[in-house]
Design a protein around this nucleic acid. Structure first.
Length: 1088
RNA sequence: GCCUUGAUGGCGGAAUUGGUAGACGCGCUGGAUUCAAAAUCCAGUUCCUUCACCGGAGUGCGGGUUCGAUUCCCGCUCAAGGUACCA
């Protein structure tokens, strides 16, 4: 019986033992302190794991095992983010159900993970595609739908509270996050709104809401594409045209949490670069919102439009306005009659006639009271016309929040006094509407002005023009006839370029004057209004005040179009470029701002703007609400059905709503999402179940939502589910969550910085607001593991031949480099020529130009990927070197957070170490151990190892631990140590890194229980105390020799010893030192 | 452009509050063992000069602070990642 280090056998044995004994199962209550170590769960792709994937898992596993040894109750779970695109695409190609391929992939993943010996508690496994799991994803969605964000409390609250307030006093006092286009209404108006109108208003407050947003639709592929799947306006795959298509989609009001997401970063220990990218992504900028009044020459002749009573839709305004003028000139008899009566009666409201609202010209309107009066002609009996009128009323009421009342010609002609009294009555029931409630629009809605956001309100006197995005809604309304053609031409030109093209091409300056002018709020000067595509419609208000002296883009624009560049900075030369240094700004030529610095001037100008009610302080965020709908099959279905186009949540007790079966995984031919193919996808409100689509009658059976949720839905809360993964009645029990609270250590890739990690923080804060989770940041500490890069290998084909030339001879030829599979190359970069020839038909008859009888391949570090033939699988490493070797080697490669190339050749180092370790315990054929007292030297080695490794693990410096182990084993081998008092604790220290070999040796030493139940040895300083120090003696800071001296010596005694040393005398060459620096226990430095 | 991180032998990397630069491992060179190979063991391995000793230079580049700088400060170069006409 020979005890050999047979890693395959040993590793299989212990993996089986751990599984059978449920060694790593965590309990939800314990005397021990808790510790939660989490990995980002993987998407189980068909390709399986490569050696880069387990890097973070190994690190977290070491940490988890270490914490167990340190006496913690450790939760270390694992699961699968199993909804996703690749399975769906595979399904489209093969017809194979994504659930089946996903299941297969998970099996592969599990097998691969098990081989590496992780200490996961698999009893808590989650899969996002599992109905028991996505039931709760749907549940959270419903909670979001039923909540709004209250700015007074700075948290989410139930939407039902909002309804109560609306019923009592309307929305006038509500301070909540909502859509920009909300209007003010009182309780009477609220009651006046139809159910549908009320729902549409509530939608503007809900934390998840439907809105029309654009998607990239590729008709040829019949699918929606992500931005990065489009290159130059055509699909990356196939090069088919892509069109922008508007679709009703769910959005998440993450913008409500912008400030808290920012503030929360202060409280969590996450990597600075990651915090920085979240900070940038949220993009908070402080400044002011300012409204500039517009002079609109074309409109100034007409009635009621010169000074800002424009309510028309910019798209149609230009064509409708002349029409309205015409109608004003030639009113019908009835219109004229009513107009006179309205003016003569003592109504306190001001009416306008033939006024543009949205895309309609209404007969009479009182803007202050938001009341529209329409007089119908004789065609009102026509059925078609009635429908049109209804549509018109609906839009005016819902979109523009006007009350519409109608009279017939007959009523006006014969019963004018009754008509007037009705009008009076309605007027008195309506509150005066003067202000929109939200801070982004401080001015009355009816005023024509252009609102801009600026971070430099202090430079307002430097404004010499304004620029609007070409898509800005006011553009066509303000453009003068003189410039209309050119403006239209410019708009058409820029619309033809995609956002991407526009962004890529930042050098070309382009723009067009509109003919319109704004009025400077302080100087009353005329400011020309331009349009230019350097202004983005999607940021701020889509309009800027251009201060060429203070902003380089404005400067370049002004230079290009010969617009004046007034200088408002004291003593700054702006003849070559703009000056944008806030810190060194002193304002000049700016009336009441003269002489002030950036901060003072900003403060003062905002005060003035607020006093004049044309502007206010404003914090703007770049963060947009997140689109939450995907036109995909393999995702969570929404628990939503539609009644009269209004979304309805399915009651929580009927969840989960299970993903239906479909025949095809592509969208339907008419462009509906894949769930449009489902035959059973309708909601029966009586049976309370999903039924056949054929039964839809829109009275009791309604269509279900066809979109599915995005990939980040399931991953935004899974860390909470692990705390109580098998709970059937709650997403996790209160007790479990109060015990585990949050993740203590989260390890994963930095690529999730602005996706998963931001959304997950958002959901956690939301769940916290509603009292469902105990903390509002889900992960205390986060570490980003670096990427492991592949070492690609290349062969060099001589152009136009079937000859391949070895690396160092290739410069003599004209060659093309071709990726070659790394498995065909040995550790000395030599190509296995026979294997290469057989690898592909086209290489069969290749010839080779060798160097020294060998073919040497070229090497290059690249991302590991199948297409580069540089993938190394952990399976083959486990097979050939063992899991412990793999674990140690991955850690040994370098600092966890750095990216580094993989080179299998280096693994022999840790292989050798493990063999030496084994030999230390089993020097001959049997384990040899004594209970003798160790020597001081042996103790010293052990304790410095304990100290270093504990420090390393706690500072995530896993690579240095491995070298510490090597040093320890080398030293103890040299000492021929076989003392139990040394070798037993040493195993415990190494157990987190190399769990299998340590378990085996631990049991060979006679221990009955798993080493993972042991206690991490206590470090004792006394074993490291030294009596002497080998002092480095430096001259002018350069070390020249060392000198062994007792640590008891005083400074003076050290100086005596050093100065009398022959080497010192030699180096001094007879000179007297200027100073002698002595740091006892550290160094001696002689200055000459 | 902006933000972040980094730059140390042939390679991966170490040096924890400023105190012996290059730990540990790979690779390479030489040796032992072997018929031979693999495996194992021993020695050497920053560069320049030298047979060797001695000596000199040296942590991306240029300055500075300090008795002493890979470490702190200023200016620059390059690389990687994030982000972007963000007003």
């Amino acid at each position: 019986f020979v005890m050999k280090y047979n890693y395959n056998e040993i590793e299989a044995k212990w993996q089986k033992y751990w599984a059978e004994n449920q060694t790593f199962k965590a309990v939800n209550n314990s005397e021990k302190p808790k510790f939660y170590v989490l990995d980002m769960f993987p998407y189980p792709s068909g390709a399986g794991l490569h050696v880069g994937h387990p890097l973070g898992y190994i690190a977290s596993d070491i940490y988890a095992r270490y914490k167990r040894l340190k006496g913690f109750n450790v939760l270390h779970p694992q699961g699968y983010d199993s909804f996703g695109l690749p399975a769906e695409q595979y399904a489209i190609q093969t017809g194979q159900h994504p659930a089946i391929t996903t299941e297969e992939n998970i099996k592969t993943y599990r097998r691969q993970l098990d081989k590496i010996g992780f200490s996961f508690d698999w009893s808590r496994e989650v899969r996002t595609s599992n109905p028991d799991y996505y039931k709760w994803t749907q549940w959270i969605f419903i909670q979001l739908y039923n909540a709004y964000y209250c700015k007074d409390d700075n948290k989410a609250r139930p939407i039902s509270e909002l309804v109560t307030v609306f019923e009592l006093e309307g929305n006038q006092k509500i301070n909540a996050v909502c859509d920009d286009d909300i209007s003010i209404f009182d309780e009477k108006a609220w009651k006046f709104f139809s159910k549908k109108e009320q729902e549409l208003i509530l939608a503007k407050y809900r934390l998840t809401y439907l809105s029309e947003s654009e998607v990239n639709w590729c008709p040829a592929l019949g699918t929606v594409l992500a931005n990065d799947e489009i290159v130059n306006g055509v699909s990356e795959r196939g090069g088919h045209p892509v069109i922008r298509k508007k679709m009703m989609q769910w959005s998440m009001r993450i913008s409500a949490y912008a400030q808290r997401l920012l503030d929360g970063l202060q409280t969590i220990d996450w990597p600075q670069p990651l915090k920085d990218s979240q900070t940038n992504w949220i993009g908070r900028s402080e400044g002011a919102m300012v409204e500039f009044e517009i002079l609109t020459p074309t409109l100034s002749n007409g009635e009621g439009v010169n000074k800002g009573y424009l309510t028309g839709d910019s798209q149609t305004a230009s064509t409708l306005l002349p029409h309205a003028k015409e109608m004003r000139k030639e009113p019908t008899l009835e219109e004229a009659l009513l107009w006179d009566s309205l003016r003569n009666s003592k109504l306190e409201a001001k009416f306008r006639r033939q006024h543009l609202i949205g895309k309609y010209i209404v007969d009479f309107v009182c803007l202050e009271k938001k009341l529209v009066i329409e007089v119908d002609g004789e065609y009102h009996n026509n059925k078609e016309q009635i429908e049109l009128d209804q549509e018109r009323t609906l839009e005016l009421e819902q979109k523009h929040f006007f009350k519409v009342i109608r009279f017939t010609n007959e009523e006006v002609k014969f019963e004018i006094s009754k008509v007037l009294s009705t009008i009076k009555q309605v007027l008195s029931s309506r509150n005066t509407i003067t202000q929109s409630n939200q801070e982004t629009s401080p001015a009355p809605l009816e005023r024509v002005g252009v609102r801009i956001f600026t971070t430099r309100p202090d430079t307002i006197f430097g404004v010499s023009f304004m620029t609007l995005a070409p898509e800005h809604e006011l553009v066509s309304a303000i453009t003068t006839d003189e410039y209309r053609e050119k403006v239209q031409e410019y708009i058409t030109k820029t619309a033809g370029r995609s956002e991407r093209e526009r962004m890529a091409d930042v050098k070309t300056i382009s723009g067009q004057f509109t003919g319109a002018y704004a009025i400077h709020p302080f100087t009353d000067e005329k400011i020309p209004i331009w349009i230019g595509d350097y202004v983005l419609a999607s940021y701020g208000t889509g309009a800027v005040m251009s201060v060429p002296c203070g902003d380089q883009r404005d400067y370049d624009f002004a230079k290009y179009f010969d617009i004046p560049i007034p200088n408002i900075f004291a003593d700054i030369d702006i003849s070559n470029e703009a000056f944008s240094d806030k810190e060194n700004t002193i304002i000049a030529n700016s009336d009441f701002l003269n002489g002030l610095n950036y901060k003072e001037a900003t403060q003062k100008v905002i005060e003035q703007l607020e006093a004049k009610e044309i502007g206010n302080r404003k914090i703007n965020y770049r963060l947009r609400d997140a689109v939450f709908s995907r036109q995909r099959y393999w995702g969570e279905p929404f628990p939503v059905y539609y009644v009269d186009e209004l979304p309805q949540m399915i009651e929580e007790k009927h969840l989960p709503i299970i993903l239906p079966e479909v025949e095809h995984y592509l969208p339907t031919e008419d462009g509906r999402p894949p769930l449009g193919n489902a035959t059973h996808w309708a909601w029966d409100v009586e049976k309370l179940s999903v039924v056949s689509c054929e039964l839809i009658n829109n009275t009791t059976i309604f269509p279900l939502e066809l979109n599915t949720m995005p990939g980040w839905a399931g991953s935004s809360w899974y860390f909470n589910r692990y705390m109580d993964a098998n709970n059937l009645t709650e997403f996790a029990s209160k007790e479990a969550m109060n015990y585990w609270k949050e993740v203590d250590l989260y390890i994963g890739g930095s690529e999730h910085a602005t996706g998963h990690l931001l959304y997950a923080r958002f959901w956690q804060k939301f769940l916290f607001d509603l009292g469902y989770v105990p903390v509002d940041e889900f992960a205390k500490k986060l570490i980003n593991q670096g990427m492991i890069l592949g070492m690609s290998a290349f062969v060099y084909r001589v152009d136009g031949t079937n000859q391949f030339v070895s690396k160092n001879l290739k410069d003599n030829y004209s060659t093309q480099s071709i990726h070659v599979d790394v498995s065909l190359v040995n550790t000395s970069d030599e190509l296995d020529i026979e294997a290469f020839k057989n690898s592909r038909e086209e290489y069969k008859n290749s010839e080779f130009i060798l160097e020294n009888g060998k073919y040497i391949v070229g090497r290059e570090v690249e991302k590991m990927s199948k297409s580069k033939y540089n993938v190394v699988s952990p399976d083959e490493i486990c097979e050939q070197h063992g899991a412990d070797s793999l674990r140690l080697f991955e850690m040994f490669l370098g600092p966890l957070e750095q990216s580094k190339p993989w080179n299998t050749a280096g693994i022999t180092g840790v292989d050798g170490f493990l063999k030496k370790l084994w030999k230390l315990y089993v020097p001959n054929e049997n384990i040899e151990i004594t209970d003798e007292t160790p020597t001081a030297e042996e103790y010293k080695t052990l304790h410095k190892t304990i100290k270093k490794v504990a420090e390393d693990i706690e500072s995530f410096s896993f690579n240095t631990s491995v070298s510490t182990f090597m040093i320890a084993v080398n030293e103890l081998t040299a000492l021929k140590c076989n003392k139990r008092a040394i070798l037993e604790p040493l195993l415990i220290v190494m157990a987190p890194y190399a769990p299998h070999i340590t378990e085996e040796l631990w049991s060979l030493l006679g221990n009955k229980e798993s080493i993972s139940k042991a206690v991490f040895p206590k470090f004792e300083e006394k074993y490291l105390v030294e009596s002497t120090k080998n002092y480095p003696v430096s001259f002018n800071g350069k070390m020249k020799f060392t000198l062994e001296l007792s640590l008891d010596l005083s400074k003076d005694e050290i100086q005596q010893e050093v100065m009398h040393h022959p080497k010192t005398i030699q180096f001094l060459e007879g000179k007297t030192p200027k100073t002698i620096i002595i740091v006892p226990g550290k160094i001696v430095n002689i200055v000459v």
